[in-house]
């Protein structure tokens, strides 16, 4: 029996529309977030991320599946734990003619949180000097900060952030990163969805990737990346053609490019330098090519567009890789039934 802070198993949601017919948004999705994790939730546009978060928070009715938040069945028992969960879902909207302070004050009042907390969270998100301004004068990044402030009001044990870096400038993104790290250091479990994959890689210790409403991979970030490490190395030499011949003759897999070679399946790079050096071909550069989250994400979701063909929303394609319809087995512990 797992004790996840968030447990989702077999979540299904289909939207029906007279105009557009039936659209499967989430199709048997599983997610497990354990206490203390900073968990990245990734997926292309329209892949079901926000629908999943909305279902988890009781804003969308799931057709099937089992969800628990902080041990409480969602959405039935959500009211019991709502005071311990801070969340922002997609770009939150606020009344333009209310000040930031008033916006938070009303939420604090409605949620039974001491109003004195408002100043603290405004300070925390960097809006202390702008809290008395009307929200309609806020930039997108400031509105995003206000949304995060609203999620922090309750001193949550679990923080769910949907695209928290949306609209933030580089300094704001760094502040958000520091904030999430600080919260995690204080024991707050964070589930963060974002398109800024480098950010996710920097702040998250675990990740789940969704495509076409299904989980395609999940696990610790390092393990996910390791699963896609093909032991590739970039090799630059003065005579690439000769080097390619030598490496192929040594039984290595080589891909030739205009000014460099990529050697695959080489756990130890000294094998490359020794093979070439013994034949008098001297290596100018030998760089390991480690996968980053972006390359893994694109490989899993099949997101790169074909040349000249604009990629459509959730244009995940199972062709050319283990995307969309099959999950990469990283030995991730599932949610017990």
């Amino acid at each position: 029996m797992t004790s996840g802070v968030i447990e989702i198993e077999g979540l299904r949601k289909t939207f029906h529309s007279l105009r557009r017919g039936r659209r499967v948004a989430v199709d048997g999705f599983d997610l497990l977030v354990e206490a203390g994790q900073v968990h990245g939730f990734l997926g292309p546009n329209g892949s079901g991320k926000t629908t999943t978060l909305r279902a988890l928070l009781g804003l969308v009715r799931a057709d099937d599946g089992r969800m628990r938040v902080l041990g409480a069945a969602a959405p039935e028992q959500l009211p019991q734990v709502a005071g311990r969960v801070g969340a922002i879902v997609e770009s939150p909207q606020f009344y333009g003619n209310f000040t930031g302070y008033r916006t938070l004050r009303l939420l604090a009042l409605a949620g039974g949180v001491p109003v004195s907390r408002v100043d603290e969270v405004l300070e925390q998100v960097g809006l202390a000097d702008r809290g008395d301004e009307r929200v309609k004068g806020y930039s997108l990044g400031m509105k995003q900060r206000l949304a995060v402030a609203s999620a922090l009001l309750k001193r949550p044990e679990l923080l769910i952030l949907d695209e928290p870096a949306n609209g933030l400038d580089p300094a704001g993104i760094r502040e958000m990163r520091d904030l999430v790290r600080a919260l995690a250091a204080n024991g707050v479990t964070v589930l963060v969805s974002s398109h800024i994959l480098a950010e996710i890689q920097l702040i998250c210790d675990h990740v789940t990737i969704i495509s076409r409403g299904r989980r395609v991979t999940a696990g610790p970030v390092t393990e996910v990346l390791a699963g896609f490490d093909h032991n590739e190395h970039l090799v630059r030499v003065d005579d690439p053609a000769r080097a390619e011949e030598l490496l192929l003759a040594a039984g290595l897999t080589v891909t030739g490019h205009a000014d460099h070679l990529v050697v695959s399946g080489v756990p130890d790079p000294t094998e490359v330098s020794r093979t070439l050096g013994e034949q008098g071909v001297w290596v100018r550069e030998l760089t390991p090519l480690r996968p980053d989250l972006e390359s893994v994400f694109l490989e899993l979701t099949g997101a790169p567009a074909h040349p000249g063909v604009p990629r459509q929303v959730d244009g995940s394609t199972p062709a050319g890789g283990p995307a969309a319809d099959q999950e990469i087995d990283l030995g991730v512990r599932g949610v017990d039934a």
């Binding site: 928070l57 804003l59 959500l78 709502a82 922002i88 939150p92 909207q93 606020f94 409605a110 609203s150």
Partner: peptide, 14 residues
């Protein structure tokens, strides 16, 4: 229309 109800329901999911 503005999402105010959603904000409120995140606080009071009833």
């Amino acid at each position: 229309n503005s999402g105010g109800v959603v904000n409120l329901l995140l606080w009071r999911p009833r």
